Simulated scan of single mutants.
Amino acid sequence: MAENNQLEQNKRNEDSMSLLARSLLTGFIGGLFWSTIAVILFYFNFSKVSPKSFILRSWLKTDWTSSWLGDLVSIVLIGVLSMIIALIYYGTLKKVKSMWVGVLYGIILWAIIFYLLQPIFNNVPGLFDLDTNTIVTTLCLYILYGIFIGYSISYDYHETQVKET
């Protein structure tokens, strides 16, 4: 009987570790996907702000940051940073089973990036200097990103809980 309890405990530990790993993978893939969409939206002039404006151009003023290589490096860096955002969601909100929490999470992330952290990104215009298309486009993009991260992690968490019972 004690061996069965130990085996069940080991299986739960493996599931929680794999859930964390899957959450980090969700964050990485979400960052890659949605930052690629942001680059496409920038090239089609839906937004005046590109991912490389935040990640690279605010600190580096070299020629390669304006090219496709700058876009590619920015997409990968956002994927890595997105793992941190997914980890925060995993640690705080994974038990909440609602799409609206993801929407709110995306809005909060947008406000943090475009309002609170804006002084760090000197290559990006201030929130009140952006045009309406850029604000609407980026806000919608962050909402979709928040839904992707939030709903994926919450769904995975609840499915793991169902399997354990």
Rank of each mutant, 00 (worst) to 15 (best):
V96R: 14
I120E: 07
F128R: 05
L117N: 09
V101G: 01
D129R: 09
A111H: 00
K95V: 01
V124I: 14
K97L: 09
K95D: 04
Y115N: 12
L116M: 13
A111P: 00
K95H: 11
A111I: 09
N123V: 04
W100K: 06
Q118Y: 04
F121R: 04
Y115F: 14
L127W: 04
D129E: 15
A111R: 02
Y105N: 05
P119K: 01
V101Q: 05
K97H: 12
L117I: 04
I113D: 06
K97C: 00
F114L: 13
P125C: 08
G126Q: 12
I112G: 05
I108C: 04
M99L: 15
I108E: 03
V96F: 13
P125D: 02
K97F: 13
I120T: 14
L109N: 13
W110C: 08
G126A: 12
Y115W: 13
Y105E: 06
F121Q: 03
I113S: 12
L127T: 01
I113N: 14
A111T: 05
Q118R: 13
F114Q: 10
P119M: 01
I113W: 07
L104I: 13
I107V: 14
V103P: 00
L127D: 01
I113H: 06
K95A: 13
L104F: 14
V96I: 15
A111W: 04
L104D: 00
I108M: 06
L116T: 10
P119W: 00
W110S: 05
